[in-house]
């Protein structure tokens, strides 16, 4: 009779088919799987948010390469205008035009440039403006040379090439020459 309760207890355990250690192992696995599942779900939700952000970024900066190419076109316009301005309205040796014709041509080129830049502006391009004497700031400037000057050293002495931002991103720094003592 004394042995009976022991046997009964064993049977109970066998009947349940779940010794304590198996249960612990199962619970551990369950927790691990649940954590993995929650992590995967969280990763997916985060991924969706990031993907949306990436899409917004893409919409903003997806045309950066095209803008870079068009900035090159603006540069060429700038050089043409600057050359023309240096020459004055007088007919060039090669041009052989009347002063009026030259002025008209110059104005036309200036207008095409403005028109091109206007289209680019509408797509987020902004010119970075610097003034002579501004302190050199590599956040949006690049120095290509130095000029001896009386002005404080390390300030903008000459703007060699215009710089542009596409929304917040500097797609081309303003290229400058800076002063040196």
């Amino acid at each position: 009779m004394d042995e009976k309760p022991e046997v009964q207890e064993e049977k109970q355990e066998n009947g349940q088919m779940m010794p304590a250690d198996v249960l612990v192992a199962c619970e551990k696995k369950r927790d691990e799987y649940l954590a993995g599942w929650q992590r995967a779900k969280a990763d997916f939700l985060n991924y969706k948010k990031e993907e949306l952000q990436r899409l917004q970024e893409f919409a903003k900066y997806g045309h950066e390469e095209l803008m870079q190419g068009l900035i090159g076109v603006l540069d060429s316009f700038d050089l043409a205008i600057s050359y023309s301005e240096k020459q004055g309205s007088a007919p060039t040796p090669t041009g052989g035009r009347s002063p009026d014709q030259s002025v008209g041509m110059e104005k036309g080129i200036y207008m095409i440039r403005a028109q091109t830049e206007d289209v680019m502006k509408r797509h987020g391009l902004l010119r970075i403006r610097v003034k002579l004497g501004d302190a050199f700031d590599p956040a949006f400037m690049e120095s290509l040379g130095e000029i001896a000057s009386e002005s404080p050293p390390g300030t903008v002495a000459e703007e060699i090439e215009r710089g542009y931002r596409l929304h917040e991103k500097v797609v081309r720094p303003v290229r400058v020459k800076i002063t040196k003592q």
Partner: peptide, 9 residues
């Protein structure tokens, strides 16, 4: 930013 001033510094 360091690269942008390398030529003059």
């Amino acid at each position: 930013l360091a690269k942008r001033q390398a030529i003059t510094n």
